[in-house]
């Protein structure tokens, strides 16, 4: 007990030792952070320290790459060279790289295009997914099993790169932004997640609304959607991140002057080449410096980092696990 007190004083409430609690009276004392069952032995000091260290290391490994990139992007080229690329903390933080890439030109345009594709694509995907999921969640709909099977089968095989490319080409979509949205409009997985959520809603709600004379659109809009904010937020995040990150469809179907940010990222950082610019900005025609490369990385990273904290609680609370289990 004393060992625990020393290593983790916050877990022990100051009022009364918990040992005196009679077994079986209350397993989850609200004053305790810990939900440890009574039969589970408290780990020793070494065990606790080891576990804490391991968790800290895991969190560090998961976040360090992003921190390193951010630090580099805030440094001057001279500092990066002096520190051999290993900038842990910029000595003289400068926004020069950001000023350069955001003052119009290739990166700014690509950023706006990426935002456009992501916003339009996510909206379209969420709307069509929710509509279809609602239609398929209602019992007795005509052809319900047929519609559902055409969706479920696509989860087990896909046609492959070449046939997909030929279909998109045959539809005349190459060179149109629709080519990076339509081929991935609905994800069967997301559809199934939303459908099973809708099916889990109490059917009395639907029956009451129907008796009150509400049609399906009205039920969807006034009853189902307000109850489904969490699951819709989750699939919106999935879709949004996919559109934001998508690069292969852009590489296949879009012209260079239509490139989203992900393609600029590939060109700058992975190929180390400038992007030809009609405006002929000299700064961008030379090979991009490391700080500029990392600034482009950070700009691509920021929207994800901004949206993620708003939505992550849904994952930790297990919104999607029900669907994952099938």
């Amino acid at each position: 007990m004393t060992a625990t007190m020393r290593t983790a004083p916050t877990t022990t409430p100051p009022t009364g030792p918990r040992r005196l609690r009679r077994p079986g009276t209350r397993r989850h004392d609200p004053r305790r952070h810990s939900a440890r069952p009574v039969w589970d032995e408290e780990p020793g000091a070494a065990g606790k320290a080891g576990k804490a260290l391991l968790l800290a290391l895991i969190c560090f490994l998961a976040t360090y790459p992003m921190i390193a990139v951010l630090a580099t992007s805030l440094s001057s080229q001279r500092e990066i060279a002096a520190k051999n690329g290993l900038v842990l903390w910029p000595g003289h933080p400068t926004l020069a790289a950001y000023r350069q890439i955001l003052s119009g030109g290739v990166v700014t345009d690509a950023l706006l295009r990426s935002v456009g594709i992501t916003v339009v694509g996510t909206l379209a995907s969420v709307v069509f997914t929710v509509l279809m999921a609602y239609g398929l969640s209602r019992p007795r709909v005509v052809g319900g099993r047929f519609w559902l099977l055409t969706v479920l089968c696509t989860m087990f095989f896909s046609a492959g790169i070449i046939p997909n490319f030929l279909v998109v080409s045959a539809l005349g979509l190459r060179g149109h932004y629709a080519a990076v949205i339509l081929p991935t409009l609905i994800s069967a997985f997301n559809l199934v997640v939303v459908r099973s959520f809708f099916m889990g809603l109490p059917r009395e709600l639907f029956e009451a609304a129907r008796i009150d004379g509400a049609g399906d659109l009205r039920i969807l809009w006034t009853i189902v959607l307000p109850l489904s904010k969490a699951v819709i937020a989750v699939i919106a995040l999935f879709y949004g991140v996919a559109y934001w990150n998508s690069f292969f469809t852009a590489m296949l179907y879009l012209d260079m002057d239509q490139w989203p940010l992900s393609m600029i990222l590939r060109q700058y950082v992975l190929l180390g080449q400038p992007v030809a610019d009609d405006a002929g900005l000299s700064a961008e025609l030379s090979a991009p410096t490391q700080a500029i490369q990392m600034a482009v990385v950070v700009i691509s990273l920021v929207p994800i980092l901004l949206v993620y904290p708003l939505l992550q609680r849904y994952f930790t609370k297990g919104v999607i696990t029900g669907a994952v289990k099938g």
Partner: peptide
């Protein structure tokens, strides 16, 4: 929350 985050980093970003 921390360990789920990298899943949302796209491959272009990750490889960069």
């Amino acid at each position: 929350s921390v360990v789920y985050l990298p899943h949302f980093i796209g491959w272009v970003l990750l490889v960069s």
